[in-house]
Design a protein around this nucleic acid. Sequence first.
DNA 1: CAAAAAGGTTGTCTTTTGCAACCAATGCCC
DNA 2: GGGCATTGGTTGCAAAAGACAACCTTTTTG
Lengths: 157, 157
Amino acid sequence: MTQERDHPDNVDGLLEGTLSWYIRSLDSLVSRDLDRRMARLPVARGKGKITALLLVDDHPGIRPSAIATVLMRDRPTTGRIVERLVEAGLIRRQVAGDDQRAQSLTVTEQGRTVAAQVRAIIREQERDFFAHIPADERRQFHRILKQSYHVLRAGLT
Amino acid sequence: MTQERDHPDNVDGLLEGTLSWYIRSLDSLVSRDLDRRMARLPVARGKGKITALLLVDDHPGIRPSAIATVLMRDRPTTGRIVERLVEAGLIRRQVAGDDQRAQSLTVTEQGRTVAAQVRAIIREQERDFFAHIPADERRQFHRILKQSYHVLRAGLT
DNA sequence: CAAAAAGGTTGTCTTTTGCAACCAATGCCC
DNA sequence: GGGCATTGGTTGCAAAAGACAACCTTTTTG
């Protein structure tokens, strides 16, 4: 049987059908779509920027190093993300009151507005993307994802 | 309650607790771990390389453009991945018999060996990483991932 | 009080990826 | 059959992300 001529639709079961492969592919699909949806916003082209903005919005006074931990990026990288958010006028950077070397990040008015838009888009995407999954399965899917994340994160040490 | 001072452990439920966020983070964790495990192999540092090698191994005679489709990368990018695999002596690149402009890729002996090792590592990772999920849940998790992948891929058009 | 550690910044380098342009072969269609 | 669009691959930028090392400042520790 010579089924190799066109591209393999039947990737499943062969070997790429591993959890890690699907996770990777799904991430790619989700990220591209999100980029497209965010195109008009001043946080476009930013995997890190989006998360950082939302984190600052949710945790006023958060420090860059904390963001770095969540993003799993090093400090220089995170610092540059913060830098761009400040330049874009979305967040404010002040010296932390209790620690002169640290910074306290807060959203600006515009930042709050954009954050709200970002959230809306994310929820919209979530609705569109996973509409095909029944509610109860989606809940379980979410639960397993969350749990895996925490278990694996913890395992890093 | 002012739980903002140190870094947010309780990311869940706040806002990053979206499917897309967990998928992204999980991908990051899985990829890093895989890189670490593959470090000794000649396909290290390659998200694309690994998949490409396995595809060639599974589909002897496959063409680069078919690999590009699976990888969701453009042809130049894929071409370079193939190039590196050829340089590494893992795959062979010949002119396709039925189409003079196309290429027919096959694994070398070494390629077959490495592919087997890669598969072993992937299965090992899968075992380690998702050991905390009960078998039946894991099966469902897998199913939903697979289904989502196909639905979203199809939606690209 | 000295040394170590923590928070950020700057500089640099590598890797990855995409886009545009190009060549060669194939297919279409009149 | 001959011209024209298409397909498969390659090459050449160019941009972006990310990592690592080195550095300065402040805080903590012993």
